[in-house]
């Protein structure tokens, strides 16, 4: 299991190639990469603030629950902070398991929890100088309910 919180960019292709490499017990690998999106065509940059210490702890707890619930063979989470340009990757998750259903579900679970339970906050800076904290969505909170057992 790997959790990395970093300012630097990363290469999703290289990360995915290295993930689960050389393991014959895996039947499925699923990955997701989140990108800085510029809906209105006016975004200059996104700055991601986080809570050093709690961030790593919170993500590790989320990963541990996913690994346990879906008996994952391996799991990778990379999440960036700092200043990011439109089109840059923000984060990535990868899950490895024997079967695809577990890998897909665990990746969705990780994404749902990272969205609402990992201490990151996004601020958008537009080219005209305006700034706006990205608000959490009710949908994101609702998404967690489907995982309660």
């Amino acid at each position: 299991m790997t959790v990395r919180v970093q300012a630097e960019t990363f290469d999703p292709g290289a990360e995915l190639s290295a993930f689960g490499q050389g393991r014959a017990d895996l039947g499925a690998i699923v990955s997701f990469t989140g990108i800085v999106r510029d809906d209105a065509g006016s975004l200059d940059r996104m700055v991601i603030e986080h809570y050093p210490g709690m961030t790593e702890k919170a993500i590790s707890q989320i990963v541990a629950r996913a690994v346990d619930r879906w008996a994952l063979a391996d799991c990778l989470v990379i999440h960036r902070h700092g200043s990011l340009q439109p089109g840059e990757q923000i984060m990535m998750v990868a899950t490895a398991s024997k079967h695809r259903v577990a890998a897909f579900e665990a990746a969705e679970y990780l994404m749902d929890y990272l969205k609402s339970r990992a201490p990151f906050w996004k601020k958008e800076f537009t080219r005209d100088g305006a700034t706006d904290w990205v608000a959490a969505k009710v949908d994101d909170e609702d998404a967690l309910k489907r995982w309660s057992d």
Binding site: G34, Y51, M54, H79, I90, M91, M111, L114, K115, S116, R117, A118, P119, F120, W121, K122, W133, V134, A135, A136, E141
Partner: peptide
């Protein structure tokens, strides 16, 4: 003790 708005990771 830390105070913050709802988180927006991912």
């Amino acid at each position: 003790v830390a105070f913050f708005p709802p988180m927006t990771g991912g």
